[in-house]
Design a protein around this nucleic acid. Structure first.
Lengths: 198, 198
DNA sequence: ACACACATGTAATTGGTTACATGATTTC
DNA sequence: GAAATCATGTAACCAATTACATGTGTGT
């Protein structure tokens, strides 16, 4: 019963905006749930066919005004029901995987400066994300605030903002700590030449 | 050059504590980086063999006091160097994947109460994690505070604590919001019978 | 006609989990 | 010596990415 979650993402996206192509769906995913979910074409197109075969979505007839051959889809009642069923099931936690934290954890084994560099990258990425989400928020408030799903979108958005702010704050103090430690005590590395001066 | 990260996790673990078996390593992973990384046996054992073949780790001879046949390993100088090389490379961001947020995002399509239930689960899980990390922190401060890697461990730990606290705070307000919305306006679902009172 | 971006699709690969099978140690 | 747990390993499977191949529309 439990299949690839790509199917449900597609259903979810089509549920609040019908008549999208695979390409459209990918883009919609990117700029709505992109902060916490991703889908690739290699996953989307096959799934679209399967969903059609199962009657959960159907190709929508090209509208009179359409001047391209792109295949658009819309969700069927069965599709909505399927989506609803999935939503009601307990969510599953994907295995945690954060390579940044992993490298930081092993920081003692790294050459001097490595962890600081990672931290700076991390900080920059998080700031960029923060800016993106803030833009998105403004945009959403302006254009979509009457949509029925709006409160839920805002919820996930505010989660992202909170996490990012907390991550950025943490990275500040972490950087301060590492910088202080490095200048005061350029620690020995078991197998690295201790030459690079502070 | 870039291979499965399992290899580096193993190297990293052995780098600060030698003479561990595959089983040990798994356990060590779980209770050190478990908050943000996981490894399965199916991944660890084959990798151990490969690492031996490549000379990055080696089986340690059973000590005189050992009374079991478990195979222990230690890291070689080449292994340390390999680890160091990997640590110095930019970390890669794994594709984001958070099913909880996904379901919350589609909350409008869900039956009443579903999102609230997910939120409560989320909150409970986060509180449990928080307790776990706090325990871990106490333990680490008591036993390992003189270890050279300690500052880095604390860094990842404090990151986890900050993220969890922010997540819990958010979940409080999110729950409040949803509860208010549900009681004031039990919204219509497009395809659900609108019977359930309150 | 040509170039370029838009759009769709597929095949190969992979990193990883799960489930299963089995052996070794301890405990009662 | 039977049961329970510790420990090692493998085989099957799977979701998902990547790279690639190709078609389609648009602007010049």
């Amino acid at each position: 019963m439990e299949r690839s979650r790509t199917a449900y993402v597609i259903l979810g996206i089509l549920a609040f905006e019908d008549h999208q192509s695979g390409y459209d769906i990918r883009k919609t995913v990117e700029c709505s749930v992109g902060y916490f979910w991703g889908e690739s074409y290699g996953q989307i197109y096959p799934t679209l066919k399967r969903l059609v075969a199962e009657g959960l979505i159907k190709p929508s007839p090209p509208s009179a005004t359409a001047r391209t051959k792109r295949q658009l889809y819309c969700i069927t009642p069965a599709g909505r029901q399927c989506l609803q069923g999935w939503l009601a099931m307990p969510y599953r936690d994907d295995p945690p995987r954060d390579e940044f934290l992993l490298k930081l954890f092993f920081g003692q084994e790294a050459a001097p400066g490595v962890s600081i560099a990672h931290l700076r990258t991390f900080q920059a990425k998080n700031r960029r994300w923060l800016a993106t989400l803030l833009d998105l928020e403004k945009l959403a408030r302006a254009n979509n605030s009457t949509q029925p799903g709006f409160p839920f979108w805002m919820l996930t958005l505010s989660f992202g903002l909170a996490q990012l702010r907390s991550a950025i704050d943490w990275s500040e103090s972490a950087l301060a700590m590492l910088a202080a430690a490095e200048s005061s005590a350029p620690w020995q590395l078991p197998g690295a030449e201790g030459s690079s001066q502070g």
